[in-house]
Amino acid sequence: MNIFRLAGDLAHVFAIIILLLKIWKTRSCAGISGKSQILFALVYLTRYLDLFTTYVSLYNSVMKVLFLASSGATVYLMYVKFRATYDRNHDSFRIEFLLVPCLLLSLLINHEFTVMEVLWTFSIYLESVAILPQLFMVSKTGEAESITSHYLFALGSYRALYLLNWVYRYIVESHYDLIAIFAGIVQTILYCDFFYLYITKVLKGKKLQLPA
């Protein structure tokens, strides 16, 4: 554990709390992509199967359970409790275009050809692109509520901070994981356009609105 990793994990937890609070307080999931949330739930389900096989630390186990529970809760709130507020017409990204390539790539490029490792690899690849339906939705409507922008900023920061964690671990511990590093770079690049808009607009008190 190092400061970058801890900061990344906290940004991730913070993002999830912002999203759950937004949905709960406004009793609405307008502007949130249910497809991205389903993909994230799938990411955690396939990655954290090792909860049953590998014990790392209490911190590690608690965080894994937290991510599984919160993503399950988000999907429940969107598709069951506040279903009427779900903006499905704007959530039209075809997720099979993400699922199929990630599955094929994880079968081809992995650390070890075992069920657990392929599923772990699939989750890493899928996480890197899971935000695309959400970004697509923002681009379709041309705007995002401030609270949604804060959520996206915290969620994007998490993998960016992990990049620093990987640099640190490479230098200090000589540990590196090319699959995680490559996917983390892709994931962070996908947020760059959003980061730019967030810093130039939302932080100056304006609503996130895309140029027409």
């Binding site: 991730h12 590998t54 070890e112 490792e117 000589s174 994981d177 699959i179």
Partner: peptide, 10 residues
């Protein structure tokens, strides 16, 4: 060859 997944990172 890299060191791979150490199951620690989330």
């Amino acid at each position: 060859e890299d060191n791979g997944n150490d199951h620690d990172e989330l």
